[in-house]
Amino acid sequence: MAFDVIGDPAYQDINHRFLSAIRAKKPLVAVHRGQNSGSIVENTAKAVRAAVVSGADIVEIDVIESTDGDFFTFHNGYEGHYFGLDQDILTLSTGELERLQYETFVSAEAEKCGVEKLATILEASSDTIINIDRSWNYWQRLLPFLDSFQCAERVLLKAPVSIQWLEELASHPVKYPFMPIVKTIEEVDLVLSLGGINTMAIEIVAENDGSELASPDLAKNLHDANLLVQLNALNLPNRVPLFLGWDDEVSVLDEPEKGWGLLVDHGADIIQTDWPMLLNRFLSSRK
Results as ranks from 00 to 15, higher is better:
A2R: 12
A2Y: 10
F3T: 02
V5Y: 08
G7V: 02
P9K: 06
A10F: 08
Q12E: 12
K26Y: 02
L28M: 10
A30C: 15
H32F: 12
H32T: 12
H32Y: 13
R33G: 09
N36W: 15
N36T: 03
S37W: 03
S37R: 15
G38F: 13
G38A: 11
S39M: 14
I40E: 05
I40V: 15
V41Q: 14
V41D: 08
N43M: 14
N43Q: 13
T44C: 14
T44N: 12
A45V: 05
A47S: 15
V52K: 15
G55D: 01
G55I: 05
I58E: 04
E60F: 11
I61L: 15
I61G: 13
G69Y: 12
D70G: 10
D70L: 12
D86W: 05
I89K: 06
T94S: 15
T94K: 15
E96H: 13
R99D: 14
F105Y: 15
F105W: 11
V106T: 15
S107T: 15
A108M: 12
E109A: 15
A110Y: 09
E111K: 15
K112W: 04
G114S: 04
V115R: 11
K117T: 06
K117Q: 12
K117W: 03
L118S: 09
L118E: 12
T120Q: 14
T120C: 13
L122E: 07
E123C: 11
A124T: 10
A124E: 15
S125M: 11
S125L: 09
D127A: 13
D127E: 14
T128P: 10
I129D: 00
I132M: 07
D133E: 08
S135E: 11
S135H: 14
W139T: 10
L143H: 07
L146Y: 09
F149E: 04
C151V: 10
A152T: 01
V155Q: 01
V161A: 03
I163G: 01
I163R: 11
W165K: 01
W165Y: 13
L169N: 00
A170G: 03
S171M: 11
Y176Q: 01
P177N: 05
F178P: 00
P180C: 03
I181H: 04
I181Q: 08
E187S: 07
E187C: 01
D189K: 14
D189I: 01
V191R: 06
L192S: 07
L192F: 00
I197Y: 09
I202M: 14
E203S: 09
I204S: 04
I204N: 06
E207F: 00
E207C: 00
E207L: 00
N208R: 09
D209Q: 11
D209L: 01
A214C: 08
A219R: 08
L228P: 04
L228A: 07
Q230D: 08
N232D: 12
N235M: 04
L236H: 02
R239F: 04
F243Y: 11
F243E: 00
L244M: 11
W246H: 07
D247E: 04
V252W: 06
D254I: 10
P256I: 02
K258W: 02
G259H: 00
W260E: 01
L262P: 01
L263E: 00
D265Y: 00
D269F: 07
D269E: 10
Q272N: 10
D274K: 09
W275Q: 11
L278D: 10
L279I: 02
L279M: 05
R281L: 08
R281Q: 10
S285W: 03
R286F: 06
R286M: 07
K287D: 07
